[in-house]
Design a protein around this nucleic acid. Structure first.
Length: 227
DNA sequence: GCGACAG
DNA sequence: ATCTTGTCGC
């Protein structure tokens, strides 16, 4: 798939400008009729060499089997700055996305969407660039206030900032630490929640993320062994 | 002013 | 993200 984008920022000031400009292009969305495929995205790093490996893995939602997988490698230059994660991960992530021959119905990102200090997390950025529905599933809390949801699978509580609902703290497995779901682009929060649960029938994290995570670190390890 | 802070 | 062994439980 094609992923048109501006030049990647070289510094934090430029990144912040791009973020605030692109933010205006986020679109709200409703339910997604007929979601057949969902793609998981993730990036692994080698701290020594600065090497990054991205993976995009497309799953069939009904069977949770792999439809297609694409990877890309590159050198990371942008530092990790909370709130600017997208600028660190996107360059190599976009390369991986462009190597997909199928267009997924929805993209599942590793991190936050609108539940972000400036309402424009990684999932929003990926959505604006691809034009596809996106949402984020994060493993740890970020900035929004949250309480502990009930112990059952599917139990959730809103992620809020003041009176504003920005996402959900969602329990995907009984008595297992919850995940943090927020909308990215062209999909609503209820649908993102439903999809997250559908993608995580057995483990805490969605199968999409698990596949992308495993593939990216496996390739990173393989590259290291081959040096 | 001092921490906290997705991956 | 990444550094890392054994160990508890199904």
């Amino acid at each position: 798939m094609r992923v048109p984008h501006d030049p990647w920022p070289a510094d934090q000031a430029e990144a912040l400008r791009q973020q605030l400009a692109l933010r205006a292009r986020v679109e709200a969305g409703g339910p997604l009729p007929a979601v057949r495929t969902a793609a998981g995205l993730d990036v692994s790093y080698d701290g020594e060499t600065g090497r990054a490996v991205a993976a995009a893995v497309v799953l069939d939602l009904a069977t949770l089997t792999v439809v297609e997988a694409a990877t890309a490698t590159g050198e990371v230059t942008f530092p990790y700055v909370p709130g600017l994660l997208a600028f660190r991960e996107l360059p190599v992530l976009v390369d991986a996305l462009e190597r997909l021959t199928v267009t997924p119905d929805v993209l599942v990102c590793d991190g936050y969407g609108v539940a972000h200090p400036r309402r424009f997390g990684l999932a929003c950025h990926v959505g604006v660039l691809t034009g596809l529905p996106t949402f984020g599933v994060a493993k740890t809390p970020f900035t929004s206030a949250h309480a502990e949801p009930g112990p059952g699978r599917g139990d959730w509580l809103p992620l809020t900032e003041d009176e504003e609902v920005l996402g959900r703290v969602l329990r995907t497995q009984p008595k297992v630490k919850p995940v943090f779901v927020s909308v990215g682009h062209r999909v609503d929060l209820a649908t993102a929640t439903t999809l997250t649960l559908a993608l995580a029938p057995r483990f805490r994290l969605p199968e999409t993320t698990r596949h992308a995570d495993q593939l990216s670190r496996r390739l990173l390890g393989g590259l290291y062994a081959a040096r």
